[in-house]
Design a binder for these strands. Structure first.
Lengths: 196, 196
DNA sequence: GGAGCGAGTGGAACACGTTCTAGAGGTTAT
DNA sequence: ATAACCTCTAGAACGTGTTCCACTCGCTCC
């Protein structure tokens, strides 16, 4: 139980990061089941107790891994702005790039997304962070001209993104199908008329 | 391993249903963690092996419980048709009734929805059944006049419904907020102009 | 420079989902 | 009627997430 909220020392930051990296490594090859807490601890060079000091559960750890993953994605996307000369095109461009990135590491993405929907309080915090990041990505891609109810539309696209992705992760949909759903959503939520 | 697909005997149907009922009872009071397989088996009066003959996992069992729950909801909704004289009003009426029903058994609903997003193959089958049921409910509520891309719009509402609900289940949103998101979705996806 | 304290370690212990084993009925086909 | 086959039972056994314990180390505050 951490009573006083001292900021993490440099060494602690590093330890925490090592744990996340270890989880990423393991998840990359074997997915959710391959991320075993004993292995994570061993690979990160810390004791199990330490892992549980930083993360309340396996799901929290994996959800935190997703946050890191999306942050990296966000940075990459921000570097190269969305292509397209209307909001709908730009949004689809960005989402397409995001899905491609996921397709390159399907096991890891499946693992961390599965954890993202866990009711664990630690994981819930990460859910919110991911939501915020995604809304930012979509909002940035919409750019100008801003449609009315910008926030609402971005949030709805976020909902479709999440829900459709769950279908892929659980294996009864494909990335192409997810992209199709997003096309439909963008088509209905960001109609061309708005950009004229 | 069931090699030949003989239809279930009456006694087997009953056993299977007893197991689901037991899971419902336990989940009603204590949520996900209170549904322990040993307890389920004991309460249903069957051996653990039997539970696992009918359901591949705890998540499958709970997901099947949700299917049953939604079927009952569907039947109740079908009895009393949606109120409202435009598609958007009728859809919101139906969704509102569904959310109220959920609000009456929050722990159970949280438990079964958590399981719904499990990658377990048995659970995945249930996901699809629930998806189909929900799309049917929404499509029926839309009624006449049918907007263009009826299926797409209904499916998108389903996405928002699921994604927003996850927020409630995990405790960082409220039912009112979920309803708000659905209002926004319906507002954007079923604009009044379509009904005129 | 000693006392206190919180973080970290190593590993045992625990809980619960899941699987396995051995055997008892019951049903079907010959 | 009997052999073959399934289902079901009771409960042991297993695996992995999580917790607990006893201890060490390093820092901070007098």
């Amino acid at each position: 139980m951490q009573t006083t909220f001292r900021p993490l020392t440099r060494a602690q930051q590093a330890r925490r990061q090592r744990v996340i990296d270890a989880a990423m490594d393991l998840g990359l090859e074997g997915g959710y089941e391959a991320v075993q807490m004993r292995d994570v601890a061993a690979r990160a060079g810390v004791a199990m107790g330490t892992v549980y000091r930083y993360f309340t559960s396996k799901d929290h750890l994996l959800a935190a891994t997703l946050v890191r993953w999306v942050e990296l994605l966000d940075a990459r996307l921000a570097q190269q702005p969305a292509r397209g000369n209307s909001p709908d095109q730009r949004v689809l461009d960005v989402l397409d790039r995001a899905l491609r990135a996921m397709g390159r590491q399907p096991k890891l993405v499946a693992a961390v997304f599965t954890s993202l929907s866990s009711p664990d309080p630690g994981a819930v915090e990460c859910q919110q962070q991911v939501t915020v990041l995604m809304e930012g990505i979509v909002t940035r891609a919409i750019g100008e001209p801003q449609p009315p109810d910008l926030g609402d539309r971005a949030r709805m696209i976020g909902h479709v993104w999440y829900s459709a992705l769950v279908g892929w992760i659980n294996g009864w949909s494909t990335l192409a199908r997810v992209y199709g759903e997003l096309e439909v959503a963008v088509g209905l939520l960001l109609p061309r008329e708005l950009s004229s």
